[in-house]
Amino acid sequence: MSMPADGRKGNLPIAGDASADASRRAFLRTVAVLVPAVGVLGGCRTYNPSAHAAAPVYFSQAEKNFIDAATQRLIPADALGAGANEAGITQFIDLQLAGAYGRAERWYMQGPWPAGTDQQGFQLKYTPAQIYREAIGGIEAHCSQQYGKPFAQLTAAQQDEVLHALEDGKVELANVPAKTFFALLWQNTQEGYLADPAYGGNRDFAGWKLIGFPGPRYNYIEEIDKFGQPYTQPFVSLVGRHPGARGMGEP
């Protein structure tokens, strides 16, 4: 067996170094690596609206229909701006579930799996992707029984009724608690609205426009002590600036 290589100046191991390939699989399981978790960031440095038309990677069409409808109730389109569908939240969640997060790659997932207290936190043997699949199946069964229609075809009031019932844990789903799923869906929906547009959501900076966050800018030395003044520079993303993007203070 060869001796381990020491890290020194000029001899520093770099993520992605060809010499590291042999151990890369194990290494990926081991540590946070600074490479994109999904393909969205890779090589893409200009904003590309056509990317949003992509077919779902993880969701089935029926699951996509549910997510489209449910997230649009959680964040509806109105006079204040775009809703979930316009902001691309379904695509965001789909890509998240298709990746490392959906597979719970960084979570400790060894059994046994006894139930715990609220203070002990998550104790389900399902990954986020599995939780969505289990829950959506159960919710559609509930909607079929209760209303005779899939969730996406219910009225807005009926959809809200179902979402409130999930939030309050009043719907029995087979394998995952309704409350757990609702909390996950709402968390991921907010992420899709407020995360960098690089991840497929927050399309056209919809979420950041709503609240007035300019994006990952670098330098506020001149502005930080100009108290009470709005910041008016254009929105930016990790993958660049939207062509034609205007300043936050402009109409």
Partner: peptide, 25 residues
Amino acid sequence: ATNIIQDELRYAVRKQIFESPERET
């Protein structure tokens, strides 16, 4: 680098800058 690290979802929410509990918690 600022065009990599200023990513709330990856580092703060998905916690990729911290230890992973996967192997040991």
